[in-house]
Amino acid sequence: MDGSPPEQEPIVKPGTGTNGLMALGLILALNQAPSIAAPLSATPETVAATPDEPLPSPSSLPDTSPVSHSFTLNDWGRDLKAPVALLVETPGIGGQAYQVILEALEQAGLDAWSLQFGPLDNPPAQHWAVHLATRAIPVAVQQLKARDRQARRRLLLLGHGMGGVMMLMAIPELDEPPRAVAALGSPLEPAPSELLEWLDTLDTTLPTITTDMDPSWKGQTVSSLLWGSAPPPREPLPTRLALEYLDWLLRGHALPLESITCPVLLVAGAMDRLAPPESIRMASHRLPDSTFLRLGMLHLDWSDPSHGDLIQDRRNAELVADWLRQEVEP
């Protein structure tokens, strides 16, 4: 692979300087989930993605030649002949944020793996972009299949938030369609809100967003709006990545939904303010074989989930894991 990414202007907003509050707003809004104390017990294997053919990219961003985006494949521990469930993480989120749902996958009898992007300095942060990082997914799938000598296991894919969007983008590029797919809190069309529009006006010129402050918007902290009482983590996020995803949340992006023919479960949280149910329901009809599920009090036995609750709440995670397991049962 070519280790030197092409010269490319980073996407930054004009401004007078870095505003820590603004930066944190982005990081909390777009990329974070509360940390979980227990560490991952995975055995990471780091590889780099350089697909031969570039994926289609949104018209709003210029495509470039393939860029190497590093990632890690984490095996969650089970070594079975069980079907593989690969979770596509959102770049910048610590792997521990997915512990609950990965455990649920394992408990459902699936061989859980996670695709974790990073380290974020390879390529340099200003070159990270959603549509470019997406190219890592087919490479990761190839590597997983290479490990399976008998090649009998069909692949299940799932993703949360931005990771789910990237997963859906990548599916048409796979050699073989996955058996089934689950996207949790992944917007299929824009659902603008004043909060997101406010975040879009924030100025930041740093390639990576880091801060330890929680911005306030109309008397409410961004973290409380998005995560409720759960504590926000502190991890860096490439600014370009955050701004690109924010642009999609506000103005939409091209997803090849019609060409995804496998069964797709689309999960929305009733109180998800990043990917609200209205950004998913109507567009789900464009998928040939989709199931839309809004979690919340309408299900009468639990409260309305926020964006983070979709992967952190064990009942939600078990529901998704059970659905995936049912899809691979004879």
């Binding site: 069964p263 797709v264 479960l265 789900s284 009809h285 998928l287 040939p288 074989d289 989709s290 199931t291 599920l293 979690l295 299900h299 009468l300 036995d301 639990w302 009942r315 529901l319 059970d322 659905w323």
Partner: peptide, 20 residues
Amino acid sequence: HRIPGSARRPGPVGICSFLC
């Protein structure tokens, strides 16, 4: 009538829905 995938959905109904 067009409801794609309508026959395949999870059914997370807990004990409360017995009462509801």
